[in-house]
Design a protein around this nucleic acid. Structure first.
Lengths: 228, 228
DNA sequence: AGGTTCTAAGTTGTCGACAAGTATACTTGT
DNA sequence: ACAAGTATACTTGTCGACAACTTAGAACCT
């Protein structure tokens, strides 16, 4: 079972730690869809009081992973359909961001992206799936940030923890499928950069559309299905 | 000064009540952008303990109205640019939803929408701005819900409180500008319905684009500017 | 047996208190 | 006058406790 990178939780509060751990358990199916979890149960599970648990549950609720009800929180979870919907949203956000960048000067941005892709290739050589997925995430986050649109950036931040967790799981799977798959992932990022460089709206639109359509195809086994 | 419809807070917890009240004060400028508010200050302001305040601040933070930092919460607020960005996001969401509905049978949906527009006309006659804005909100929410896309619906729910508050303020202003403006608002909703009825993607796209482009123009005085 | 009321266990919402950490203001030494 | 160190007030994170409410089940009546 994949563990959560503990280095990321170094300066985190108990509430954030619990949220991250619960998020992982919900997405990888340890905690199953339909279950109801109570604050007391989570608190005893992590050996804390209810205060940080309440914070964690509110976070997870705002991410749509659970639904807060009068008695207990119902686990919504993520099946394959939900992850596809997540990619729909990612496409909407990134497509919007890149369209916005089509008019600007992107040379500085392209430099940043190149550095990130370099780190991805390094992570591939070191067989470091966690680092690889993190740089993958950074790549897209850098683009969205560059678009300079507060609300869109906020939208991204609201789905970011889920996207990160899903990428952690799927990237781990890609690593197990050999190096060729990894090279194709990196190539896809170069394609995006070329799209940005062209500064043509229709080219960009097509490139981004293909990117996410392709990403969708490679996730069907690390995510639990509806009937798990 | 516009008050918050107290009927909506009937069954709400203290945390939700505080969140709603703070949200309104931030958006209408009573609490100004750049200020930092502490949990203790809010708690004494509302005469409660810090627990519901923490919940409220977390809510407002997830909506992007404040930024939680180590010492105090910094008020981000909404200036005119931010509201325009909000309309960008609304356009993205609703455009996606309506494109999705272009393929489905929408007769049932159109019936619902007609009933809502009827209520809007009634609210106009009764000079009830609160009811009018609420039905306006319901109109768009009904469309988004009908698209049957969990993630998009969740996105909508995450911006819904802000949209509702902004609509409350702007609608109040439209009411003060006389009946003609109100008729044109209602007409815009009929235009959307006709777009949906056509079931043609390009027609729908154009209609929705025009709707939000037009809505943007009518908000420049109820929202405080950057320098207020 | 079936339906109803009452009890009991469990849940959330809210409170006040304490510890740990941070920024500000003050004091002190030069 | 100014720098450095210290004290102080204020902030958040976490805890345990209590009240109000919901749900499920047991006991009881018909």
């Amino acid at each position: 079972m994949l563990q959560y990178p503990s280095a990321w939780l170094q300066n985190a509060s108990l509430g954030e730690t619990i949220a991250c751990e619960l998020r992982l358990r919900i997405i990888n199916g340890t905690i199953k869809t339909g279950e109801t979890i109570s604050e007391n149960w989570v608190a005893s599970e992590f050996g804390t009081s209810r205060s940080p648990v309440r914070e964690a549950l509110k976070t997870l609720s705002s991410e749509g992973l659970i639904r807060l009800e009068r008695m207990g929180a119902v686990v919504v979870g993520l099946d394959v359909t939900d992850v596809e919907e997540l990619y729909d949203v990612r496409f909407l956000i990134e497509s919007f961001a890149q369209q916005r960048l089509a008019q600007s000067d992107v040379t500085g941005l392209l430099g940043c992206l190149q550095r990130i892709v370099d780190k991805m290739e390094l992570a591939m050589k070191h067989n470091d799936a966690v680092e690889f997925s993190y740089q993958d995430l950074s790549f897209h986050e850098t683009i969205i940030t560059a678009a300079n649109h507060n609300r869109i950036l906020h939208l991204w931040k609201s789905i970011r923890p889920i996207v990160m967790t899903v990428m952690l799981l799927t990237t781990d799977e890609i690593f197990s499928k050999g190096e060729q798959k990894l090279h194709s992932v990196i190539d896809k990022h170069y394609t995006i950069m070329k799209g940005l460089e062209s500064r043509k709206r229709d080219v960009i639109e097509q490139v981004v559309r293909e990117y996410f359509a392709d990403s969708r195809k490679t996730l069907h086994s690390s995510i639990p299905g509806r009937t798990s």
